[in-house]
């Protein structure tokens, strides 16, 4: 079974996000980069499926050469090949990203294509469905469990009122959520292998989509000063006073 995972290079933000002077992007001068938690689980799942079925686990991204770092991270987790669709824009719009992935997939026939439910930065939450539509493939989003059964795949999702199980013929597309599995940490051996691996680069003609970022802004935060109730165990009576005021002491 051949599985391909689409990942995005995103800034690894801490507790405070700084913006560039023109406010069109996150200031990444002092930040590392990563792939989102949903995508990390997608890579883990692809590697497990490939191990179980004797197939391949590929990883694909759309972005500049720097994004090879994220492809190599996925390969250090066990992905066996990587493709980068060259795009000088670090955070392309979702129409462009979907068109780039669709173009790349026309030359690669994986049985299952996995996406994260939404990227950790822009969060457009639509690329997987756009790609599935363009390729006329079955697609399920919000996936928290994947089972393989011959030429079919079963996909378990959390619905607002319970759990749903969907079944789709292969080839299929799924957008997954963190919690699907517990991703492994790369081994030293995996890291060395990934360092030497080749990233295949393709450059299809891409036009720009029609959702364009003008500026980013911080959400206005209106919180009063923190009231420090005390230090250590001595603060307990003050904490219980607060709980009592909130009607939580029964």
């Amino acid at each position: 079974m051949d599985v391909l995972v689409c990942v995005k290079r995103v800034p690894a933000v801490g507790s405070e996000i700084l913006l560039t002077a023109d406010a069109t992007a996150i200031d990444t001068r002092h930040l590392g980069f990563t792939i989102g938690p949903h995508e990390e689980c997608a890579v883990e799942e692809a590697v497990r499926i490939a191990e179980r079925t004797g197939g391949s686990a590929g990883v694909l991204t759309v972005g500049p050469p720097e994004a090879d770092e994220q492809l190599r991270y996925a390969m250090s987790m066990g992905a066996d090949h990587a493709v980068r669709v060259d795009d000088p824009v670090a955070d392309p719009d979702p129409e462009t990203t979907a068109a780039a992935i669709t173009a790349a997939l026309r030359g690669l026939p994986p049985d299952v294509v996995l996406f994260g439910e939404a990227s950790a930065d822009a969060g457009h939450a639509q690329v997987g469905f756009r790609v599935a539509c363009a390729l006329r493939r079955p697609v399920v989003g919000g996936v928290k469990g994947i089972g393989l059964d011959g030429d079919r795949v079963t996909l378990r999702c959390d619905a607002p009122d319970g759990v749903e199980v969907h079944e789709a013929p292969l080839p299929a597309v799924a957008a997954v959520l963190e919690g699907l599995n517990l991703p492994r940490y790369p081994t030293i051996k995996g890291r060395l292998r990934a360092k030497k691996a080749t990233v295949r680069v393709i450059a299809p003609d891409l036009s720009t989509g029609r959702l364009r970022t003008l500026r980013l802004r911080h959400r206005p935060e209106a919180r009063a000063e923190t009231v420090v109730l005390g230090r250590g165990a001595a603060a307990a009576p003050a904490v219980v006073d607060v709980l009592a005021d909130l009607g939580m002491v029964r």
Binding site: A224, V228, G230, G232, A233, A235, A236, V239, V242, V249
Partner: peptide
Amino acid sequence: RATWAVIGDVHEVLPAVIAEL
């Protein structure tokens, strides 16, 4: 960013809060 805070180790503060409750 909190409304209230207690500075201390979870394993000292919470048992004392539980006892007081």
